[in-house]
Design a protein around this nucleic acid. Structure first.
Length: 591
RNA sequence: CGGGGGGUGGCGCAGUUGGUAGCGCGCCUGGUUUGGGACCAGGAGGCCGGGGGUUCAAGUCCCCCCUCCCCGACCA
């Protein structure tokens, strides 16, 4: 059936909604695709729901094509499985919890590793049953502290997540590769540009976890990309190579210097450059010649709290996200005044390697940025108020307990693979493939018998795509100043036929004929049949709604012609009425 | 959770020293229009986010709460 715009449940807004900031949110609300219904929750209107279904269909087709099978869970889940894996508590405030009339606890699933693991455990018990790949497309619930960007980060959102179950690591790798390949096909079909980045430290073997990021200024993830080689990684996963040792045979002995009133690195550098006796033999001292020591508190999952000291070059900050990722599952907490009181060896503002390290006065574990080479000399805190030390050589004058790579990553940092300059970019995480391994299977005791009749713990992978987020990302990727521009496969309709201008009946007749012609060729068609609406309004709405091809039947009909407009390429072609359908079909095929 | 800015018809906004709640768009009726968000005339539509207080009188002043947006923190 040709959808008549006069009958469609939609209202476009002339003005931008004031509470929408990012383009996708603004346009989806203004064009009548979604409405906010709750904090972080959106209602899909008919147009939006068609887009959603199209995205879900593409994902289903590709998942089914690799042999994955769809299941469907209840939204309301029991507490026990999440209790068993510790996530009932680990998820903290982000978990939506509820109780039934008997005060029994339930939760709204934030993610479903537990349920899938138990489902397979429930039914399968032999290696012959493996591998098996299951997926769901369902709403997830996370009580985000700050939902934002409309569909980009909600508290209720739709996600496709798959889980693979294999008997061994080789199988897991095959399952992972199959999903990764499927994701490439999915995002290509969705018209979403993406970069695949490493999401975990190289220590685990670089391919254990990768993210698909859609590069975009409003994205919340930061990643680096190398212009020369193909290296790309989430900033959390970037690993800097260790610096080569430096010959320090000509470096003077360490020297403690009075440095009053040097609360910042810059004032410290200025003081050294301003004093004749401290001046460098060649050039000026830089912030990068100083060693900054940051102390934090780590809170382990078992509740244990211990301090950790990190040394980074003075021109860099410690990136807390990177630090959290490195020390996970421990949480990072600030080192507070009260903590200084408990550790008298630490002098606030003058913390140096002299006091740090498990072998020194504080006993605090001390880890160094990999850029800090053995043999390099530094200006750093002397562990006395108002004093710094210079010519302090790593390996000669102090020794750290190890290396940790958590300094901020900057534009033009060198690529760990080829040494060229890295570029920092932002992106929206649209997909994530992850080799979970045996963590959940062990905890929930998912084992099968192998060929030798022995119990073997199953190894798992998890693979997610945010469906509602993908809708927003596509809108983000496919719009211009006039409105949305849906890729053909995702658009609510293939063609938008407009009845424009003063009509003696022939225009409406022509428009109907074209709409039906398109439909009989398998196209999904919306017809703007609204009466008393001026052509300008209809054109604006057509541009805002964003179907790939717009056919305008208007004043040209008197001369036997209509217009075919391609919303993607921006071209307008006038064509005889009897060729309108075939031309529109050709343009749709191009879009 | 910290900082900042908001909440007044469906949407966007104004509202003075406290004194009958307004404008534009949209919506309804009639008429005129019909190729780039038309025009005229007449209408409908508001618990001014919620609660408490001050006052003869509160959209406006005071207190508490809710909620939205932005920045940060947080985020399998």
């Amino acid at each position: 059936m040709v959808q008549r715009l006069s009958q469609l449940f939609v209202r476009t807004l002339r003005d931008n909604p004031v509470d929408a900031e990012v383009p996708s949110h603004r346009l989806l609300v203004r064009a009548g695709y979604i409405r906010r219904a709750a904090p972080g929750g959106y209602t899909w209107l008919p147009l939006g729901w068609r887009v959603y279904q199209n995205v879900a269909r593409v994902i289903r087709e590709e998942m089914d094509a690799i042999g994955a099978q769809e299941v469907h869970f209840p939204a309301m889940l029991p507490r026990e499985p999440y209790e068993a894996t510790g996530r009932w508590t680990d998820y903290g405030d982000n978990l939506f919890r509820l109780q039934d009339r008997r005060k029994v606890d339930y939760l709204l699933g934030p993610t479903h590793e537990e349920m899938f693991t138990l489902l397979v455990k429930d039914l399968y018990s032999s290696y012959k049953d493996l591998p098996v790949w299951l997926y769901q497309i369902q709403d997830k619930f996370r009580d985000e502290a700050r939902p934002r960007g409309g569909l980009l980060r909600g508290r209720e959102f739709s996600m496709k997540d798959s889980y693979s179950f294999d008997i061994d690591d080789e199988g897991l790798q095959r399952s992972y590769d199959a999903h990764r390949d499927a994701y490439v096909r999915i995002f290509d079909r969705l018209g979403l540009p993406y970069v695949i980045v490493s999401a975990m430290s190289g220590a685990m073997g670089g391919s254990a976890s990768e993210e698909f990021l859609f590069p975009c200024d409003v994205g919340e993830d930061t990643f680096v990309q190398c212009a020369s080689c193909h290296y790309s990684a989430n900033t959390e996963a970037v690993r800097v190579g260790a610096a080569s040792p430096i010959d320090h045979s000509s470096t003077p002995a360490q020297r403690v210097v009075d440095t009053p009133n040097t609360p910042t690195i810059q004032t410290l550098v200025d003081l050294f450059n301003g004093r004749d006796d401290l001046r460098r033999t060649s050039g000026q001292w830089q912030a990068s010649d100083t060693l900054k020591n940051v102390v934090v508190m780590l809170r382990h999952p078992d509740g244990r709290i211990e301090p950790l000291a990190v040394g980074v070059p003075g021109d860099r900050e410690v990136d807390m996200k990177r630090l959290e990722a490195q020390v996970s599952p421990a949480e990072v907490q600030p080192f507070e005044e009260a903590d200084f009181a408990k550790h008298p060896a630490l002098v606030k503002g003058y913390i140096g390697p002299g006091a740090l390290g498990t072998k020194n006065a504080s006993g605090i574990k001390y880890l160094l940025d990999p850029r800090i080479a053995i043999g390099s000399e530094w200006i750093t805190g002397a562990d006395q108020a108002g004093k710094h030390v210079m010519h302090l050589v790593n390996g000669r004058d102090f020794e750290a307990d190890g290396v940790i790579d958590v300094a901020e990553v900057r534009d033009d940092d060198t690529c760990p693979q080829c040494g060229s300059a890295l570029e920092i970019r932002r992106g929206i995480e649209i997909g994530h493939v992850f080799q979970l391994g045996r963590k959940y299977a062990e905890t929930l005791d998912l084992q099968v018998l192998d060929q030798n009749g022995k119990q073997r713990v199953v190894t798992m992978g998890s693979y997610g795509i945010g469906v509602s987020r993908a809708v927003a990302a596509i809108a983000e990727a496919s719009h211009d100043e006039l409105g949305l521009r849906w890729p053909r496969e995702i658009a609510p309709f293939d063609a938008h036929v407009v009845i424009a201008g003063k009509d003696d009946g022939s225009i409406t007749q022509t428009a109907n004929q074209i709409a039906e012609g398109l439909q009989s060729n398998g196209m999904r068609v919306v017809l703007d049949d609204r009466v008393g609406v001026s052509p300008g309004v209809k054109f604006k709405d057509a541009e805002l709604l964003g179907m790939p091809v717009v056919v305008v039947a208007g004043r040209g009909v008197a001369n036997g012609v209509v217009e075919v407009r391609n919303r993607i390429t921006g071209t307008t072609t006038e064509t005889p009425i009897d060729q309108a359908v075939s031309l529109a079909l050709a343009e749709i095929a191009k879009a």
